[in-house]
């Protein structure tokens, strides 16, 4: 692939380091800001892979909208107190999660390494995309012709999400707890 190795390794190591911080940081606010860096690194890798529209959307939607939502909820609930909950997880759960993750990761790397990749199936080579007017134009033309049905279904999904989010957040009062409920034993 005609990808600049220097930039790829910079963005990839930044993304891996910051996603480890997301998992390991005690404070949810620190996790959220590490997640913003992960999103920016991903946007850089999308741009390296010639997916310019996706790179812009990544920054606008993920680093913009979704992260604001996360920070907003953390601040609203005053949940920004450090809680090192990993230490409360049972040691066997922790070991099982880490070993399982590592084993599955190794399996995936082995599969990707020893795979015979398919020959290119489409005709969207970089030259063809350039001749057709660039990545953004090609993606938008496909979106409003071949992929119009999923595009319209997406609007139904967003309507459902809006209604359910409002219904969840606007409910008056707390749900009824059973009498004598004391929370965590």
């Amino acid at each position: 692939m005609d990808v600049s190795p220097v930039f790829f390794y910079i963005f990839a190591s930044l993304a891996i380091a910051c996603s480890l911080l997301v998992v390991l940081k005690k404070n949810p606010v620190a996790s959220a800001f590490s997640l913003v860096l992960v999103f920016f690194a991903f946007a850089g890798i999308y741009a390296l892979l010639d997916a310019h529209l996706i790179a812009a959307l990544q920054i606008l939607v993920y680093a913009g909208a979704i992260m604001v939502l996360f920070i907003f909820v953390i601040m609203l609930l005053s949940a920004d107190t450090p809680s090192f909950d990993i230490a409360r997880t049972h040691i066997s759960t922790r070991m099982a999660a880490m070993i399982g993750g590592l084993v599955l990761f190794g399996l995936f790397v082995w599969a990707f390494r020893n795979n015979t990749y398919l020959a290119p199936t489409g005709n969207f080579t970089p030259e063809n995309i350039e001749a057709a007017g660039g990545n953004t134009r090609v993606v938008s033309e496909l979106m409003f012709s071949e992929y119009i049905l999923p595009f319209e279904l997406t609007s139904v999904l967003l309507l459902g999400a809006i209604i359910s989010a409002v219904a969840l957040a606007k409910r008056k009062g707390a749900a009824q707890l059973p009498p004598g409920y004391k929370g965590k034993a």
């Binding site: 998992v23 990993i86 997880t89 759960t93 922790r94 999660a97 993750g101």
Partner: peptide
């Protein structure tokens, strides 16, 4: 798999 491990070990 970093995300996967995080889901399994975090409680927040």
């Amino acid at each position: 798999f970093i995300g996967f491990t995080g889901i399994l070990i975090r409680r927040n």
